[in-house]
Nucleic acid binder design. Structure first.
Lengths: 332, 332
DNA sequence: TCTAATTTGTGCGTATGTATG
DNA sequence: GCATACATACGCACAAATTAG
């Protein structure tokens, strides 16, 4: 990694890019107090810049007290303590309430020295491509939630490799990038296993699974569990006027379906938690108090945001699985 | 074929001819992403135009996201796809689930020919100022939710006057701008009046009101209603280990407090809708099925988004109050 | 001690976009 | 449409300090 790097596509003024890249080098400990910076002439020559542009950057750093000059010798690092302003590109799939916890905890953990811009691709690859292309070069970090979109890997690879983080979904083509994601296969399997004692009083598992929006791993883990423990099962894409048979357990990723199932159960006078079981995805405060509480399989989005921020601040590059658990309540 | 060409006999305004000829050049691949446009001075000189005319054209192209400027260098092609007629700057206060409906209905009603970028000021005037300044000039419309921040008016006034829309809050200093907002005073007053028959079986109204986050009008309307109909009342900033007396009605803008109140009522074995009343703010699907349904005062955020989009598409400049209503359910 | 090469420091001119009146 | 001040970027010339030979 070089001390100075500039990108002509970047809309940031060149002298500011130089300032930023030197600050980054110091923050990442590639430059330490007393180290000599590359000379003005060298930098100008290497990047085909005017001497004055480089000079402007060095003067700026001098003004901020980060470096000092010795006439006839060179520029040297004076201080390692300053706050580096980060600009973060955060690309979500869609606007929904589960992003709220993630965003807030991420923002909080990044502290005041980060500006975070949020974008949504809405499961549209063209929008995805456009957003990535148009913002490439303008940010210090790129955090991307690719979800189940096809063709994302090629687009992501056009971004600066060291500044990209993958959120929420693992993907074979993106395994070189640091990431924090849910393991959907494992999560649903483990959750069902954790609730197996309670599942025994039911005789059929039904997954409400609209395939475009939900990650395929969910289905895979569900099938794996049903196979292993010989449960009768069904996968339906939607819950519309679907009568409920006593002894069924519904696994419901979407909250609108959850409301439908509860209302249907009530209209059939079926006791939730006795004759019908419900497992919902993603915990929200209200689920604690619906009926006798709704059992949820829940990834801790708050933790996801915090861990992501730490990974960025400490420059660690890991592939982490975000913890998920079964929160047992009265509905199972 | 030149990049820019204008025809004085043409009735089309000169700046629009420039816009059109550059768009054509891009469409015909004579200009590609990253290419430099002829400088403002050159074009002005070549066609004997005022610098301002050329500037107007280039600014128009910038607003549409087709080109961008590098200070001291020139204008460059940013995007080769410019089916997008509108680029919209949407500045929210904070990320929360009620924005979801608003955003989705707005996006839907704007149709495919709009790109919407979302930002959050998090109730911080410095962040607000920075976001507005940095993006001033890059968008065709600016939609802003100023909330209760002081000093926003001066910042907003730096934006192009005809392209600004105010969301969710009215403000005396911003009354010249088109807006769609809740009338918090009227909404809570009318809602309570609508539910007055049911309120009669209770003897005290309690508003849980953390003053920093909630609009002051809410408190004003509450007090007005209590005064007019001689209700005993109390305003508390938080609900922490607050014992419930039978006969109390809680008006709860925040959902975490809602959960606390429900749990407290249950632990005191008080029947919600009989001995304790609850009115919650903002409807969500789950509130239909909590207890026997939670009565909510709810602005239709979905309608707000749709109306906003229509206002923009039809270039109407009105100050509208968004409709709000009391959704009566079992909790009152 | 002299010289050449390297480096910082200073000054001036020109071109371009940005902002304001 | 015109004028003016300002920020960014590039290029050239020259002075002053340091270092290596």
């Amino acid at each position: 990694m070089k001390i100075v790097s500039i990108d002509t596509r970047n809309s940031l003024p060149k002298y500011k890019q130089i300032v930023l890249s030197i600050e980054t080098s110091i923050a990442e400990k590639r430059l330490k107090r007393g180290d000599k910076l590359p000379s003005v002439n060298k930098v100008a020559l290497e990047f085909s810049l005017s001497r004055d542009t480089v000079l402007l950057a060095y003067e700026e750093l001098k003004k901020r007290g980060i470096i000092y000059a010795r006439l006839g010798k060179g520029y040297y690092v004076k201080s390692e303590e300053f706050t580096l302003q980060q600009r973060i590109f955060l690309l979500f799939d869609e606007f929904n309430s589960f992003k709220e916890d993630l965003y807030n905890s991420f923002k909080e953990a990044m502290g005041s020295n980060a500006q975070i811009d949020i974008f949504f691709h809405s499961f549209n690859i063209e929008v995805f491509k456009k957003l990535v292309n148009e913002n490439n070069g303008d940010y210090s970090k790129y955090i991307i939630m690719p979800t189940t979109l096809n063709g994302v890997a090629a687009v992501i690879k056009t971004l600066p490799k060291n500044d990209v983080y993958i959120l929420d979904q693992a993907n074979a083509e993106l395994e070189d990038y640091p990431s924090i994601h849910q393991n959907f296969v494992k999560d649903i399997y483990n959750a069902l296993e954790a609730g197996r004692d309670k599942l025994k009083k039911y005789n059929k598992l039904i997954l409400i699974f609209p395939p475009e929006k939900q990650p395929p791993g969910m289905q895979e883990g569900f099938l794996k569990f049903c196979g292993k423990y010989s449960f009768d099962f069904e996968i339906i894409p939607d819950f519309e006027n679907h009568g409920i048979q006593p002894g069924e357990v519904y696994i419901i990723p979407n909250d609108r379906h959850l409301v439908n199932v509860i209302e249907q159960a009530r209209s059939q006078k079926l006791k939730i938690g006795k004759q019908v079981g419900i497992i919902s995805y993603n915990d929200t405060p209200l689920k604690k108090v619906v009926e006798n509480g709704i059992t949820t399989i829940s990834t801790d989005f708050k933790a996801m945001g915090t861990i992501l921020a730490h990974m960025i601040l400490q420059q660690s590059r890991q592939q982490l699985e975000n913890k998920s658990r079964l929160i047992e309540r009265g509905s199972l």
